[in-house]
Amino acid sequence: MSVVFVGPILFALAFVIHWIVWQIRRPQATGQALIFLLTATVFGGAAVLWLCGRAEPGLARFLPGDAGAWAQTIAFGLAISAAYVLTYPAIEVESPIMVIIDLIQRSGPGGLERSELYRRLDDDFLVTPRINDLVNEGLAVDGDNGCRLTEKGKSLGRIFIVWRKILGAGIGG
Protein backbone atom coordinates (compact mmCIF):
# COMPACT_ATOMS: atom_id res chain seq x y z
CA MET A 1 0.00 0.00 0.00
CA SER A 2 3.04 2.28 0.36
CA VAL A 3 2.98 3.37 -3.29
CA VAL A 4 -0.54 4.80 -3.08
CA PHE A 5 0.37 6.89 -0.01
CA VAL A 6 4.01 7.90 -0.59
CA GLY A 7 3.34 9.28 -4.10
CA PRO A 8 0.73 11.81 -2.88
CA ILE A 9 2.91 12.61 0.15
CA LEU A 10 5.75 13.58 -2.21
CA PHE A 11 3.34 15.88 -4.09
CA ALA A 12 2.09 17.37 -0.80
CA LEU A 13 5.69 18.15 0.18
CA ALA A 14 6.27 19.74 -3.24
CA PHE A 15 3.11 21.86 -2.81
CA VAL A 16 4.27 23.12 0.60
CA ILE A 17 7.61 24.19 -0.87
CA HIS A 18 5.76 25.83 -3.79
CA TRP A 19 3.60 27.74 -1.27
CA ILE A 20 6.68 28.89 0.69
CA VAL A 21 8.49 30.12 -2.43
CA TRP A 22 5.35 31.92 -3.66
CA GLN A 23 5.08 33.73 -0.30
CA ILE A 24 8.67 34.96 -0.63
CA ARG A 25 8.41 36.03 -4.28
CA ARG A 26 6.33 34.77 -7.18
CA PRO A 27 8.67 34.02 -10.12
CA GLN A 28 8.23 35.83 -13.44
CA ALA A 29 7.98 32.68 -15.58
CA THR A 30 5.70 30.85 -13.17
CA GLY A 31 5.02 27.84 -15.40
CA GLN A 32 8.65 26.91 -15.84
CA ALA A 33 9.48 27.64 -12.18
CA LEU A 34 6.60 25.45 -11.01
CA ILE A 35 7.61 22.51 -13.24
CA PHE A 36 11.20 22.69 -11.99
CA LEU A 37 10.22 23.10 -8.33
CA LEU A 38 7.68 20.25 -8.22
CA THR A 39 9.86 17.83 -10.22
CA ALA A 40 12.95 18.53 -8.12
CA THR A 41 11.00 18.12 -4.86
CA VAL A 42 9.37 14.84 -5.88
CA PHE A 43 12.72 13.34 -6.89
CA GLY A 44 14.56 14.91 -3.96
CA GLY A 45 11.89 13.84 -1.48
CA ALA A 46 12.00 10.26 -2.79
CA ALA A 47 15.80 10.23 -2.46
CA VAL A 48 15.60 11.49 1.14
CA LEU A 49 12.95 8.88 2.04
CA TRP A 50 15.00 6.10 0.45
CA LEU A 51 18.08 7.14 2.46
CA CYS A 52 16.00 7.37 5.64
CA GLY A 53 14.66 3.86 4.94
CA ARG A 54 18.20 2.55 4.63
CA ALA A 55 19.24 4.28 7.85
CA GLU A 56 16.15 3.24 9.82
CA PRO A 57 14.82 -0.26 9.03
CA GLY A 58 11.66 0.44 11.05
CA LEU A 59 10.75 3.14 8.54
CA ALA A 60 11.58 0.96 5.51
CA ARG A 61 8.46 -1.19 5.96
CA PHE A 62 6.30 1.87 5.22
CA LEU A 63 8.22 2.65 2.04
CA PRO A 64 8.27 1.02 -1.42
CA GLY A 65 10.17 -2.26 -1.40
CA ASP A 66 11.92 -2.50 -4.76
CA ALA A 67 13.13 -0.40 -7.68
CA GLY A 68 9.89 -0.88 -9.59
CA ALA A 69 7.75 0.21 -6.64
CA TRP A 70 9.96 3.29 -6.11
CA ALA A 71 9.66 4.15 -9.80
CA GLN A 72 5.87 3.76 -9.57
CA THR A 73 5.79 5.99 -6.48
CA ILE A 74 7.82 8.73 -8.16
CA ALA A 75 5.72 8.42 -11.33
CA PHE A 76 2.55 8.81 -9.23
CA GLY A 77 3.97 11.89 -7.44
CA LEU A 78 4.98 13.39 -10.79
CA ALA A 79 1.56 12.61 -12.32
CA ILE A 80 -0.23 14.50 -9.52
CA SER A 81 2.30 17.36 -9.88
CA ALA A 82 1.72 17.52 -13.63
CA ALA A 83 -2.03 17.67 -13.04
CA TYR A 84 -1.50 20.60 -10.67
CA VAL A 85 0.83 22.40 -13.12
CA LEU A 86 -1.90 22.18 -15.79
CA THR A 87 -4.46 23.52 -13.29
CA TYR A 88 -2.25 26.39 -12.08
CA PRO A 89 -2.91 28.79 -15.02
CA ALA A 90 -6.60 28.75 -14.10
CA ILE A 91 -5.62 29.70 -10.55
CA GLU A 92 -3.11 32.41 -11.46
CA VAL A 93 -4.92 33.96 -14.41
CA GLU A 94 -8.52 35.09 -14.38
CA SER A 95 -10.47 32.45 -16.29
CA PRO A 96 -13.02 34.40 -18.38
CA ILE A 97 -15.75 31.80 -17.79
CA MET A 98 -15.27 32.00 -14.02
CA VAL A 99 -15.24 35.81 -14.07
CA ILE A 100 -18.47 35.79 -16.15
CA ILE A 101 -20.13 33.36 -13.72
CA ASP A 102 -18.95 35.40 -10.73
CA LEU A 103 -20.25 38.67 -12.22
CA ILE A 104 -23.64 37.12 -13.03
CA GLN A 105 -23.88 35.63 -9.54
CA ARG A 106 -23.00 38.95 -7.88
CA SER A 107 -25.59 40.81 -9.96
CA GLY A 108 -28.33 39.03 -8.01
CA PRO A 109 -31.56 37.30 -9.03
CA GLY A 110 -32.26 39.85 -11.79
CA GLY A 111 -29.20 38.73 -13.75
CA LEU A 112 -26.77 40.80 -15.80
CA GLU A 113 -27.04 42.51 -19.19
CA ARG A 114 -24.76 41.03 -21.86
CA SER A 115 -23.63 44.57 -22.74
CA GLU A 116 -22.36 44.99 -19.17
CA LEU A 117 -20.12 41.96 -19.66
CA TYR A 118 -18.70 43.47 -22.86
CA ARG A 119 -18.06 46.73 -20.99
CA ARG A 120 -16.26 45.13 -18.05
CA LEU A 121 -14.38 42.38 -19.91
CA ASP A 122 -12.51 44.39 -22.52
CA ASP A 123 -9.26 43.87 -24.43
CA ASP A 124 -7.20 45.39 -21.60
CA PHE A 125 -8.60 42.81 -19.18
CA LEU A 126 -8.83 39.71 -21.38
CA VAL A 127 -6.27 39.94 -24.19
CA THR A 128 -3.44 42.39 -23.49
CA PRO A 129 -2.25 40.59 -20.31
CA ARG A 130 -2.10 37.30 -22.24
CA ILE A 131 0.02 38.92 -24.96
CA ASN A 132 2.31 40.14 -22.17
CA ASP A 133 2.43 36.57 -20.77
CA LEU A 134 3.72 35.28 -24.12
CA VAL A 135 6.47 37.91 -24.05
CA ASN A 136 7.35 37.24 -20.37
CA GLU A 137 7.56 33.46 -20.96
CA GLY A 138 9.94 34.00 -23.90
CA LEU A 139 7.43 32.79 -26.50
CA ALA A 140 7.14 36.10 -28.35
CA VAL A 141 8.95 39.42 -28.70
CA ASP A 142 7.19 42.74 -29.05
CA GLY A 143 9.30 45.12 -31.11
CA ASP A 144 8.88 48.14 -33.37
CA ASN A 145 7.44 45.94 -36.14
CA GLY A 146 4.96 44.31 -33.80
CA CYS A 147 4.74 40.92 -32.07
CA ARG A 148 6.64 38.01 -33.48
CA LEU A 149 7.12 34.51 -32.09
CA THR A 150 10.50 33.35 -30.85
CA GLU A 151 11.79 29.93 -31.94
CA LYS A 152 10.34 28.49 -28.71
CA GLY A 153 6.98 30.12 -29.45
CA LYS A 154 7.01 28.87 -33.06
CA SER A 155 7.65 25.29 -31.87
CA LEU A 156 4.80 25.44 -29.36
CA GLY A 157 2.48 27.10 -31.87
CA ARG A 158 3.26 24.37 -34.42
CA ILE A 159 2.46 21.65 -31.87
CA PHE A 160 -1.00 23.10 -31.25
CA ILE A 161 -1.66 23.65 -34.98
CA VAL A 162 -0.71 20.05 -35.77
CA TRP A 163 -2.74 18.70 -32.82
CA ARG A 164 -5.87 20.60 -33.89
CA LYS A 165 -5.38 19.19 -37.44
CA ILE A 166 -5.11 15.63 -36.06
CA LEU A 167 -8.36 16.15 -34.17
CA GLY A 168 -9.98 17.76 -37.18
CA ALA A 169 -10.95 20.70 -34.99
CA GLY A 170 -11.16 24.33 -36.00
CA ILE A 171 -9.44 27.28 -34.37
CA GLY A 172 -10.19 27.61 -30.68
CA GLY A 173 -10.15 30.48 -28.21
Binding site: L134, R148, R158, F160, I161, R164, I171, G172, G173
Partner: peptide
Amino acid sequence: GRRVRLLIELA
Protein backbone atom coordinates in the same frame (compact mmCIF):
# COMPACT_ATOMS: atom_id res chain seq x y z
CA GLY B 1 -6.92 28.90 -24.30
CA ARG B 2 -6.37 32.58 -25.06
CA ARG B 3 -2.57 32.24 -25.11
CA VAL B 4 -2.84 29.22 -27.41
CA ARG B 5 -5.08 31.17 -29.79
CA LEU B 6 -2.64 34.11 -29.75
CA LEU B 7 0.26 31.69 -30.39
CA ILE B 8 -1.60 30.23 -33.38
CA GLU B 9 -2.47 33.68 -34.75
CA LEU B 10 1.19 34.73 -34.50
CA ALA B 11 2.39 31.39 -35.92
